[in-house]
Design a protein around this nucleic acid. Structure first.
Lengths: 236, 236
DNA sequence: CAGTGGTCTAGACCACTGA
DNA sequence: CAGTGGTCTAGACCACTGA
């Protein structure tokens, strides 16, 4: 059973291979759709489908009259997996637990632009807790949630489910931004992770939106070595 | 000049909006192509183009006979920008410099599986250096390059150009994998970054390939706060 | 076996834009 | 203004697979 790939797929793969291997370089011009129809003995729609896919993937640039050229090397953007912590810990075969440290409903601090940006004049829910894998502390979490956007979270029980998992089930975000860096463990929470103050930690600060509405602002701080992010580019 | 969007684009946007807003939930079934043809008064190819795009983006799942359903919430994969350091520093309006610490051509250490995986029985080029922004040390880099894959790099002058920039110009990778974590500054290079040993650093370890060939293995260690990675998902 | 999506054709009209 | 890509049509044959 040798699967016969679709013709548009074969055309796409062939041209993609020529670009990735370097036989076709940025700026090189490709044959027109009319010429490719003759090469592959097919209709224009079929050629167009292959070229449009490559154009959508950023490998080609197409302009009327000017024709189709190989795109300049794209910015190095990679796909980054940011798994839900409970899922990731379970995948490793460890027991996951979230321990709530404290929670508070209050207005945004007017002198904290991040809080004002999140909650505006409304209330926010402020939550802190620790993520454990097999009862070993893995990350400290400090989260702010807009109660205007998610009023029903005021009643959620975070001893059962981490706030992040709760949010994902109830109002998944449509947009997110993560800032990833390193920080030294802060005195206020170093001991919660069994660390000395200043010990190296991986910090992920995430903002999420649902459409226009700001949902949450969370900062997770991981014990160095307890968690790694992986970003990939290219074939699986 | 109100740009009239293409019909297939309008169909795609409408359905996409219904999914992202939650009016259509994972598992919900969409009308068949035949039904959508009637709704939008268009041909099947036009409907198909819209649905195929959404299927390719992971928002829909399509199966013959079973029809088209909204896909389960996709894994949270984000787009991560990993800029070339020289480019990133220039973008900030700072002066970039790479300082070569040492370089060495040798065989892979048989007891280091990462080196053996990179160079096999062949030679590798081992390079260490520091990246500066406005003469302030920003990152320490330790890089291994397969000389079998890139013999011409043996003659490159790294006082002029960082190894990473040289590689990008000469043999851009087609696949890459990055592991991002936090580490404490190592005694061997902490002083090069004006850090005390153990001070928090952001670590990026990158492997690259060109097709099947392994190109390089590099670990860059950034002074905490000197560099942040940003990952985004959703609309720009 | 009937409905669904996957693919392909041979044509058409058009907007754009560089020669 | 002529060549190019963007879009769309009305049809066709087929593979797949759940009712």
């Amino acid at each position: 059973m040798t699967r016969i790939p679709a013709l548009h797929d074969r055309i796409r793969t062939e041209i993609e291979g020529q670009i990735l291997s370097g036989r076709l370089k940025p700026g090189d011009r490709l044959p027109s759709e009319l010429e490719l129809m003759a090469v592959y003995q097919c209709s224009r729609m079929t050629v167009s489908k292959a070229l449009s896919a490559l154009s959508g993937a950023g490998l080609l640039q197409r302009r009327k009259r000017a024709g189709t050229v190989v795109a300049p090397r794209p910015a190095e953007t990679m796909v980054l997996d940011i798994p839900d912590l409970a899922v990731e810990v379970a995948r490793r075969g460890q027991a996951y637990r979230f321990r709530l440290i404290d929670r508070e409903v209050r207005a945004a601090h007017a002198d904290d632009p991040r809080e004002v940006g999140l909650a505006g004049a409304g209330q926010l829910l402020f939550v802190r807790g620790v993520h454990y894998a097999d009862e070993v502390p893995m990350a400290f979490e400090e989260r702010r949630i807009s109660l205007e956007a998610v009023p029903e979270i005021a009643a959620a029980d975070f001893s059962v489910e981490a706030p992040g998992s709760w949010l994902l089930r109830h109002i998944p975000w449509t947009e997110a931004e993560n800032r990833i860096g390193a920080v030294g463990a802060h005195e206020a929470w170093a001991s919660l992770l069994n660390l000395a103050p200043g010990a190296p930690c991986l910090s992920i600060e995430r903002r999420t939106w649902r459409g226009e509405a700001r949902i949450t602002l969370v900062r997770q701080t991981f014990v160095a070595g307890a968690f790694e992010l992986v970003a990939r580019f290219g074939a699986a």
